[in-house]
Each structure stands twice: as C-alpha cells, then as structure tokens.
Design a binder for these strands. Structure first.
Length: 460
RNA sequence: GGCCCCGUCGUAUAGUGGUUAGUAUACCGGGCUCUCAACCCGGAGGUGCGGGUUCGAUUCCCGCCGGGGCUACCA
C-alpha cells in the first residue's frame, strides 16, 4: 500500500508556524516514500471556522511550496458521510444518544471536581431504557451521540512513529461525543471517518494530539477498521519555553513572508526545528530535505523557536540565489515603499547580500539607490558635520573610467591634494553619497551606482 | 488533581558504559579594512538533582525536580 499523509488544519486563524511544521513533515514523509499528500480543512466548528482563514492557509501553504496532491477537502461538505457511520454505530450499539444538557454536564463535572475525581462523563444516558430513548427522540429532545467505550478494553497501545511505544489505559477515557446535538461531527470522530475514507496511512501531528489517539483508535475499532500509523512530534515553544503563541511575536507564516524571509529558508528552518538529519550542516534545499528525511530522526523534546537561527538560514538561502533572482524577490518590498527596481540595482546585490538578514533589509540598507530622499543615519550625520571639501571632486571622478580601481585612484589623489586622511575622508564621501556610516567597500559601491547619481550628490 | 510526553552549552542539536563531550547559531576578543558585514584565528559556555547497577556512568534502572501537553457537544 502506498503512503498517504495529510495535513488537516482548522480554519480558525492564519497558518501558524506549528501547523506549518506539521504540514511540512507530512509533506516530507509522503515525498520521501513516494506517496501522496492530502490537504483537508477541518471546518466542523461553525463557531470558529471562517472561509477567509481557509483561504489564508492555502496561500501560506503555497508560499511554502507545500503542494498537496489531493484536496483541499472540506469537512463541512462531507456531513452525509459522518451521519451514515454514526447511524451504523448507533444501530450496532457501539454508540448511544445522550440527552444531557450543557448545564447538566457542567454540574456533573463540578461535583466530580469537588470530590477530587477526574472529570469524566458518567455514562448516565447509556443506561436509559430503549423506551425512554424512543420517547425522548419522539418528543424532539436534542441529543448528542457518544461512543460507548468497551468496559473491558484494557490498555490501548500503539507504536508511535517518533516516540516509540505508548500505552494508555482505556479506563482514562470516558464516553466522548462523536456527533454534537446540532448534528455536526466532533474533531475526533470526523478525523477517523476522513482518514479512513481518504486512505491515509500515516498520521504525523503535534504531541498535543497524543491524548486523542486512543480515542480515535477506539473509533476505528468500533467501526472495524484498521487504524493508520501515528507519529507525534514535539511542540514548538517560545523563548520562555512555553507553548509558542502571539505573546512571542509573529506566529503566522504570512508574517514571516511579509518580513522578508524566503519561503525556502522558512521551509529549511521548520524542518530543522526539532529534528536533525545531518549533524554537520543546517542549510538544505527542499529536495535535500526530502531525500534526507527520516522520521526516526525527529527529536523527542520540545524545541524553542530561535529567530537568530532563522535569520542565519535565511541569509544562507539568499546567498544561494542568483543576483537577478534575489532582486526579483526584493521587488515587492521595494514597491511597498514606493520604490522602483531598476536593472542597475542588480550590481548592488553582491555588495549587500552579506549584510542582509531579510529581503526587506535591502530596501533599508540601500534606500539611497532608490531615491534622493534617503535616510541619513546618526553617525553619518556627525560625519557630515566635518564639512570636508568636495569642490572639484566630481570633475575628477567624471574624468575617470567608472570602475572601482579608477574611482579609488581618483579619491586617493584628491584626498592627497587636500591633505585629508583617507581614514576620515572616505567615510565622509560615503555619508555624502549614501547618507550612511556603514556599507560596502566605498569604491565598489560607487562603481555599482550610476555615475550621474554619484556626481549629482557630490555637487549638492 | 488525574493521565501522557520530555530533560546534553542561551538556542538547535551530535555522540558514547571509559571522549579533551563534537557541530551550528548567538555572544566576547583579535586579525583584515575606508566603515559595517562577510571571512580567518582565538575564547567563554552544557550532560537538572539524588539514589542505585557497574571497576567506571552523560549514557542503563528508580525516585525527585523541572518543562510541555491533554483533561469540551474546540481542533
């Protein structure tokens, strides 16, 4: 049987990095073993699911090049399927109707808590007589459908793809809800129906799903189906080692896109978060990650999201792109500031890529090539106050061939004539021409800039 | 509270019943230079604690502590 994995986000917000990593590992797993990858939107919670979120998730998936082979499927469009199997379970006595109201359930839990007991459904509705059930149904009382957990089921165990053997006593489980009183399926129920129906063979997800796994196994058993293999990956934590959330800053994938991170860098970074495929390197292409992927090398403990590492990987990926490709990627960020990208800008790329952390940085580090209205940094401001002479410099440069070698010669000669120390004078020229106190080698920088732009600024 | 998962430099990780416990990043210092970055050289920094098992434990076992997760008619 060929491998089939899936990513099943619920559209209750943007695609966050944790979800993206889950999607990514499922993608890698499928590709590694020549299988396929399914995308399924779990929108069974009418309260929280929003169509625009689904759209945003799809956009982020595409941005990361997590291309799915099937889907997206929407659970909201598969209600008949869930209904069908719920009926079956009901008929076979493996599930039952529960007429308890939320208030009643809350009160029950309240009492259990008061006694220091675990809060579990006590199965009261499973003891209703068939006549009573019939009476209530006919009276139009709303009901949920609960799975009847077999009393003698004992220990539920599975060999986790990443954690190894895990077992949980079925006594820990109560008769949980499969179908809500409004007829919609709950997560655990819909997942099983869909995973089975879609032929999913391997389920990789966050370890927050470990407690759900025995429940799902029980549903598979009640339906007489073979369960897929499960693998649970450690969580991603914030700097303070608590679960990554808004408090830690950006958690939505699209925020990283907007900050100027390369999708291939994000892909790379996410794959390394909590896994190590080759201890001697940390920069990989997507293809390399597919080849090196090994579910046994996924770590066991939660990993802290470290922006420093992301910056580093982003920088490495930027260096891997051609100058024209990099400029192309920078374009949207320049345009967002109202700047127009021009062909000559490509020559600045090799000079600036070393000091860029993100695509956005290019626009900020080199705003002077886009506009005469560039920013002047604090130190440059001070340097400018020295008011070194520039008269005649423009003419000297105008006469020189426009390459670094001749520019340097001209500048050195001018400095010598005026008895200025290159150490002080060159930074001054940089400040005059770019408004910056730092940047690439001055002569190479000037060479890469249009001659008329440089001369114009020297004459100001 | 109950159940489950986990614990190697700040972070991500490699590794082994005996190692100077490795690498990357971040940090500090030096070199290079017109500055910053890159690059090169150097530095600091880790096996959570306590018991066992053993000639010897970071590694194996137990306990503790610590972190995380779940405990819904959310997913």
């Amino acid at each position: 049987m060929s491998v089939k994995t899936r990513f099943a986000p619920s559209p209750t917000g943007y695609l966050h990095v944790g979800g993206a990593r889950t999607a990514l590992f499922n993608y890698l797993f499928a590709k590694k073993y020549g299988g396929s990858f399914v995308l399924r939107i779990e929108d069974t919670d009418p309260e929280r699911s929003k169509p625009e979120y689904s759209e945003q998730i799809l956009i982020s998936m595409k941005w990361l090049s997590l291309d799915w082979d099937e889907g997206p499927y929407y659970q909201s469009q598969r209600m008949e399927l869930y209904k069908k199997f719920a009926e079956k379970l009901l008929e076979e006595g493996k599930a039952y109707r529960c007429f308890c109201t939320p208030e009643e359930l809350e009160q029950m839990r309240e009492e259990q808590r008061a006694k220091g007991l675990p809060t579990r459904y006590d199965g009261r509705c499973s003891r209703l007589s068939p006549e009573e059930v019939k009476r209530r149904v006919e009276a139009g009382m709303p009901y949920a459908i609960r799975l009847k957990v077999p009393q003698d089921r004992g220990v539920i165990a599975w060999k986790d793809l990443v954690k190894g053997p895990i077992e949980i006593d079925s006594k820990e489980l109560d008769d949980f809800v499969l179908v809500r009183s409004d007829g919609t399926p709950t997560y655990n129920y819909a997942v099983v129906i869909d995973d089975y129906d879609m032929g999913i063979t391997h389920v990789l997800r966050g370890e927050d799903h470990i407690p759900n796994t025995p429940k799902q196994i029980l549903i598979y058993e009640a339906l007489g189906w073979k369960a897929p293999a499960f693998g649970h990956m450690p969580m991603i934590l914030g700097k303070d080692k608590t679960k990554l959330s808004k408090r830690h800053g950006a958690v939505g994938v699209e925020a990283y896109r907007d900050e100027g991170f390369l999708p291939e860098a994000m892909f790379n970074f996410l794959a390394l978060l909590g896994a190590s495929f080759d201890p001697n390197r940390d920069v990989y292409t997507k293809q390399e990650l597919i080849e090196l992927f090994d579910e046994n090398k996924i770590g066991l403990h939660p990993a802290v999201f470290d922006p420093d590492k992301l910056y580093h990987i982003n920088r490495e990926h930027m260096k891997m792109l051609s100058t024209s490709e990099l400029l192309e990627r920078i374009k949207p960020f320049a345009e967002a500031k109202g700047y127009k990208v021009e062909p000559f800008h490509e020559q600045l790329i090799p000079l600036l890529v070393e000091r860029m952390h993100t695509l956005k940085d290019f626009v900020e580090l080199a705003d002077y090539i886009f506009t005469d209205d560039y920013t002047v940094d604090q130190k440059a401001q001070e340097i400018l106050e020295k008011n070194f002479p520039v008269e005649g410099l423009a003419d000297m440069l105008a006469a020189a061939p426009w390459d670094a070698e001749h520019i340097e010669a001209a500048l050195r000669e001018y400095a010598a004539q005026k008895e200025l120390k290159p150490r002080e004078y060159f930074p001054y020229i940089r400040a005059v021409v770019t408004g910056k106190s730092v940047g690439p080698s001055l002569f190479h920088l000037l060479e890469a800039m249009p001659k008329d732009m440089v001369l114009r600024r020297l004459k100001r």
